[in-house]
Design a protein around this nucleic acid. Structure first.
Length: 859
RNA sequence: GCCGGGGUGGCGAAACUGGCAGACGCAGGGGACUUAAAAUCCCCUGGGACAAAAUCCCGUGCGGGUUCAAGUCCCGCCCCCGGCACCA
C-alpha cells in the first residue's frame, strides 16, 4: 500500500516548530559571525520564482553556515519607496502608503510560507519614518562633508515619468523603468559627489578580487572609467582665459588644426557673445542641446558643428587655432573641449573632412609615410613623431611623456586623470520617497534641517500624484511652507525626494541595529557583524546599487562609523529565471496556455509563437510563489531552482523540473519511512576498520558524497551537490542489506547533508528516525579522509591513447607493477603483441598508456 | 568597435591541475507490480557499422597545432548571451 505524504502539511508543522524554538534569532554577541544577506525585494506585485531564486540561495548558504557552527545574521526587509506606488495611486486611486504597506503585508505572508531562516525581529521598510529619518540624516552628513551639493546642469529627464534620472538609470538612451527616450533638461538638482571617491572605488576593487564575480569587478571598473591622459591648456585669444582639453594622445599635439567645444559647455555663452556669428551659433547650440542622446548617436557618422569665428592659442606653437562647437563632444567627459587632430583621430578626421579643415600629419608608422592628401581615415596607432619641433623623432610613448613635462614646465597642463563616472544625481520630482531635509530661505539661502528635527515627514494629505514636471510636494501647502531653521523667517522646504538607491545604500547597516532611536546605528554593534560575509543578488545592480553602497560605506568609513572599507566581502550573482510562453503575432499579445491548441490560438486561428523570456508580470509568464507552494510545497520549489543548473546561470522554469524535484523528495520520504524508522539502528557507533565488502563500499561512497556535497555547496554548485545526493539515494535503494549499520549511519548523515537544501523534508526524516531536537542543531558531517577510496581500484589501460582494457589493482601500485598486470590482460596482450613498445605513460592510480609502433608502420 | 561569459546527447547539465566524455535529472524504450491505468520499483538509452553479441569506427561550434593523451593548452575563424560604446 503506497503511503501518501502531504508535503505542505509537513512543512507547516516544522515551520511552526522552528518559530516556537526561535531557531533564527540572532545572537547579540556572535562568537564566530557570519552575515548572509540577499538584496532586499522591491515590494511590488507578487513574489514569483524569478525573485525566489535569490532567497533560496541565501537560505541554503545561511543553513550551511548554521550547521557549520557559525552565529549567523540573516535579516530581511523591504525596499519600499519608489515610483510604482505613485503609479498605483494615479491608476487606482489608492494612496501610495496604503498600496505599499498592503504589498509588504502580502510579501511578508509569502515569505513566511517559505520557512526561510530570517530573523524577523530585524525587519525594516525604507518608507518607514523610523528608517528614512536616518536616510535624511545620511544626506545631512554628506552635506556637512561637502559631498552633497546643488548645481544646475543638463540632466536626464524622462518625459513620461516626469522626473530626472541618474546616469545609471538611463539604459540605451531610454528610461530604465518605462523605456521612454530620455531628454536633456537644464535643472538645478542635488548631487552626491561620488567622483571624489572614484579612485578608491576603483582601487579597492582589488580587495574584492576572487570574492566578487570577475564580470562585476570589470563592469565597475569600466563604469568608473579611469583614464590617464594629459591636460593641455589652450588660451582664448580674446582675453587669455584658459580653455583646457583632455587627451590621451599628447604626442599628436602638433597636429591640432581646430578645437571643439561641447554645446552644453559653460564657456559657450561667452563664445556666443563674442562671435561675429552669434545668431547662427546660438541657434545651433539650442538645437544641439535639445537633441536627446539617442538623436545625437544617429549623428555618429554625421558630425555636425559650427565655427565660432574665434581662436585659441596653441600652447607650444603659439599658432591661432579656430574654435568650433560640435555635438560630438561630450560635455561630461574630460573638460568638455577636445583638441582636433584629424590625422590621428577618426572622429576629428570625419569632422575635418565635413568642414574642410586642414589635416596635419605628426605621427608616422615605424616603416612608412603618411600623405595627408591621400588619407582615407585617421592613423590612430602609435608611431614616430614628425613635424613636432624638438619632439620629432621620438616614439609616441616617449613624446606623450616629454610633452607632458614641457606643458607642466610652462604651467599649461600636464599629467591628469579623467573619469567616465559622473556625480550621482539624487533628487527626484516625486512624492513617494524620503524628503530632502533642506530648507530654501529667501534671506539665508539653502539651510539644512537640524538633526533633532528629523525626520522631515512626508505629508499624507497629498491627493494628486500625477507627474507634471515638479514634485507633488510643492502643492502640499502646509508642508512646503515652513520657517527657516536659521533666521526663523518664512521659507520653503526642498520639494524633491531622494533617489531610492540612497535608501538601499545603507540598509545592511540598519539591520544590525534596527531599533536604534538616537543614532543611525551603534558603530560597536555594526562592527561586530560587518562586513556582510556573503551578499547575494542580481547582476543588474553591478553599476548601480553595488557602486552606490560601496560609496556610502566609504563615506561612513571616513566618518569613523564603520571599520571596513567595503560593505560586501563576498558577492554571488544568481542568474535569471526564464519561462516559455505563447505569443500571438496576429493579436499582438501573450496567450494563455489554455487558449492554445496544436500551436494555434483558439481565439483567432493563427499560429502562435513559443517565446522564452525572463519571468515578468508584464509578460504574464510568472509562476507565483504563494499558489505554487500551497500546491507543491516550498522544498519542491527550492529543489527545482537549485537543481536546474548552475546557480549563476539563467535557468528555464519547467514543469518537468518540478516533477523531478518532487519525485526526489518523495523518494527520500519513502525510503526513510520504510527503512529508517528504527532509532536503535541509526544511533549506533560504527568502526569503519571492521567493515568489508558492500558495507565498506557504501561507507566509502558516503564519505565521497559528504566531501563532494560540502565542496560543491561552498562553491554555489548546488546542482551538482544535489546530483551527488540523488546518486547516493540511488545507492541506498539498491543496497541489499537495509539493516546494515552503514545504512543507519548513511541515513543520519544524508539527512543532515540534505537539510540546507530541503530543510522541511530533512527535519521530517530526522524526526522519523526518532531524534527529538531539531536537525539544525547538528553539525554538518565531516568526511573520513581515510575512507575516500577503495583499496582495490580499476585502472584504464590505453594503447596509443585509446582505452583498450582495464586492470584491477591495489591502490598505490608502481608503474612497473601496473604495467605487468596490464600485460597479463588478454585484450591488451593482443594489441601489444605485434608492435614495439616505445613508451609507457603512467599516472598513479589513474591511468596507464602504452605507446607502441606496430609492424605495418601505421602507428 | 572594446571588455566579460559561453557553444558538450532529444533536453537541463557533469567532467579535479591535460588522464575512461556525457555523472545526476528530464524525456523516451523495456520489464516487474496491477483486472487495467496512474504511481512506484528495476533495467536500457550519444551517433554509426553488424540480425545480435563481441568488436570496431565517429563524436564536445569550425580549421590547424602542441602532447603518449585535448571538452580542457596554443594559433586562426564562426556563432550566441551580457556590459560599455563619438569617453578624446
Amino acid at each position: 500500500m503506497e503511503k501518501v505524504f502531504n508535503l505542505r502539511k509537513i512543512e507547516k508543522k516544522w515551520q511552526k516548530h522552528w518559530n516556537d524554538i526561535g531557531l533564527y534569532r540572532t545572537k547579540e554577541i556572535p562568537e564566530k559571525k557570519y552575515y548572509v544577506l540577499e538584496m532586499f525585494p522591491y515590494t511590488s506585485g507578487e513574489l514569483h520564482m524569478g525573485h525566489l531564486k535569490n532567497y533560496v540561495i541565501g537560505d541554503v548558504v545561511a543553513r550551511v553556515k548554521i550547521m557549520e557552527g557559525y552565529d549567523i545574521l540573516h535579516p530581511i526587509g523591504w525596499d519600499a519607496f519608489g515610483l510604482p506606488a505613485e503609479n498605483a495611486a494615479i491608476k487606482h486611486g489608492i494612496h501610495p502608503k496604503t498600496w505599499t504597506y498592503r504589498n509588504i503585508e502580502n510579501f511578508r505572508k509569502t515569505f513566511e510560507m517559505l520557512g526561510l531562516s530570517y530573523d524577523w525581529g530585524r525587519e525594516l521598510a525604507t518608507c518607514d519614518p523610523d528608517y528614512y529619518r536616518w536616510t535624511q540624516w545620511l544626506f545631512l552628513l554628506l552635506y556637512k562633508k561637502g559631498l552633497a551639493y546643488r548645481k544646475s546642469d543638463y540632466v536626464n529627464w524622462c518625459p513620461s515619468c516626469k522626473t530626472v534620472l541618474a546616469n545609471e538609470q538611463v539604459v540605451d538612451g531610454k528610461c530604465e523603468r518605462c523605456k521612454t527616450h530620455v531628454l536633456k533638461k537644464e535643472l538645478e538638482q542635488w548631487f552626491f559627489k561620488i567622483t571624489d571617491y572614484a579612485d578608491r572605488l576603483i582601487d579597492d576593487l582589488s580587495l574584492l578580487k576572487n570574492k566578487w564575480p570577475d564580470n562585476i569587478l570589470k563592469q565597475q571598473e569600466n563604469w568608473i572609467g579611469r583614464s590617464y591622459g594629459t591636460r593641455i591648456v589652450f588660451k582664448y585669444e580674446n582675453d587669455g582665459s584658459e580653455l583646457p582639453v583632455f587627451t590621451t594622445r599628447a604626442d599628436t599635439l602638433f597636429g591640432v588644426t581646430f578645437i571643439t567645444v561641447a554645446p552644453e559647455h559653460g564657456v559657450v555663452r561667452r563664445l556666443i557673445a563674442d562671435s561675429p556669428y552669434s545668431k547662427s551659433i546660438a541657434e545651433y547650440v539650442r538645437k544641439a542641446v535639445q537633441k536627446s542622446d539617442v538623436e545625437r548617436e544617429f549623428g555618429k557618422q554625421e558630425k555636425s558643428g559650427i565655427f565660432t569665428g574665434l581662436y585659441a592659442i596653441h600652447p607650444l606653437t603659439g599658432q591661432r587655432i579656430p574654435i568650433w562647437i560640435g555635438d560630438y563632444v561630450l560635455a561630461h567627459y574630460g573638460t568638455g573641449v577636445v583638441m582636433g587632430v584629424p590625422a590621428h583621430d577618426q572622429r576629428d578626421f570625419e569632422f575635418a573632412k565635413r568642414n574642410a579643415l586642414p589635416i596635419k600629419v605628426v605621427v608616422k608608422p615605424i616603416n612608412g609615410e603618411l600623405d595627408p592628401e591621400a588619407m582615407e581615415c585617421a592613423y590612430e596607432e602609435y608611431g614616430i613623431m614628425v613635424n613636432s619641433a624638438q619632439f620629432s623623432g621620438m616614439t609616441s610613448e616617449a613624446g606623450i611623456e616629454e610633452i607632458q613635462k614641457e606643458l607642466h614646465k610652462r604651467g599649461l597642463g600636464g599629467l591628469t586623470v579623467s573619469y567616465r563616472l559622473r556625480d550621482w544625481l539624487i533628487s527626484r520630482q516625486r512624492y513617494w520617497g524620503a524628503p530632502i531635509p533642506m530648507v530654501h530661505c529667501p534671506s539665508c539661502g539653502i539651510v539644512p534641517v537640524p538633526e533633532e528635527n528629523l525626520p522631515v515627514l512626508l505629508p499624507e494629505n497629498v491627493k494628486d500624484f500625477k507627474p507634471r514636471g515638479r514634485s507633488p510636494l510643492e502643492d502640499a501647502e502646509d508642508w512646503i511652507n515652513t520657517k527657516c531653521p536659521s533666521c526663523g523667517g518664512n521659507a520653503k522646504r526642498d520639494p524633491d525626494t531622494m533617489d531610492t538607491f540612497v535608501d538601499s545604500s545603507w540598509y545592511f547597516l540598519r539591520y544590525i541595529d534596527p531599533d536604534n532611536k538616537s543614532h543611525i546605528f551603534d558603530p560597536e554593534k555594526v562592527n561586530r557583524w560587518m562586513p556582510v560575509d556573503q551578499y547575494i543578488g542580481g547582476v543588474e545592480h553591478a553599476t548601480k546599487h553595488l557602486i552606490y553602497a560601496r560609496f556610502i560605506q566609504k563615506v561612513l568609513f571616513d566618518e569613523g562609523l564603520v571599520s571596513s572599507p567595503e560593505p560586501f566581502d563576498n558577492l554571488f550573482t544568481q542568474g535569471l529565471v526564464h519561462k516559455s510562453f505563447y505569443y500571438c503575432n496576429h493579436c499582438g499579445e501573450v496567450v494563455k496556455d489554455e487558449e492554445v491548441k496544436d500551436e494555434i490560438h483558439t481565439h483567432c486561428g493563427s499560429r502562435v509563437e513559443l517565446l522564452t523570456e525572463m519571468m515578468s508580470k508584464s509578460r504574464g509568464n510568472i509562476v507565483a510563489v504563494a499558489p505554487f507552494v500551497e500546491e507543491h510545497g516550498t522544498d519542491v520549489a527550492r529543489i527545482t531552482i537549485l537543481f536546474a543548473g548552475p546557480a549563476e546561470k539563467d535557468m528555464l522554469w519547467s514543469d518537468a523540473g518540478v516533477e523531478g524535484a518532487k519525485r526526489f523528495l518523495l523518494r527520500i520520504l519513502r525510503f526513510y519511512d520504510a527503512y529508517a524508522r528504527n532509532p536503535e539502528k541509526v544511533g549506533k557507533e560504527l568502526d569503519p576498520s571492521k567493515l568489508s565488502g558492500n558495507d565498506l563500499a557504501l561507507y566509502i561512497k558516503l564519505q565521497q558524497t559528504i566531501k563532494a556535497v560540502r565542496e560543491d555547496s561552498s562553491q554555489f554548485h548546488f546542482n551538482t551537490a544535489l546530483a551527488r545526493m540523488m546518486e547516493f539515494l540511488n545507492d541506498l535503494y539498491s543496497f541489499e542489506n537495509k539493516n546494515s549499520p552503514v545504512v543507519g549511519r548513511s541515513c543520519v548523515d544524508f539527512a543532515i547533508l540534505l537539510a540546507p537544501f530541503a530543510p522541511h523534508i530533512a527535519e521530517e526524516i530526522w524526526n522519523m528516525m526518532g531524534f527529538e531536537k531539531t536537525i539544525f542543531f547538528e553539525r554538518y558531517p565531516e568526511y573520513d579522509e581515510r575512507y575516500l577510496h577503495f583499496e582495490e581500484i580499476e585502472i584504464p589501460v590505453q594503447v596509443n591513447g585509446r582505452v583498450r582494457g582495464r586492470v584491477s589493482v591495489r591502490k598505490g601500485l608502481s608503474k612497473e607493477e601496473v604495467f605487468e598486470a596490464a600485460l597479463k590482460d588478454e585484450k591488451i596482450k593482443n594489441y601489444v603483441k605485434d608492435g614495439t613498445i616505445l613508451n609507457v605513460v603512467f599516472v598513479q592510480d589513474r591511468l596507464l598508456n602504452i605507446v607502441i609502433k606496430s609492424e605495418g608502420g601505421i602507428n
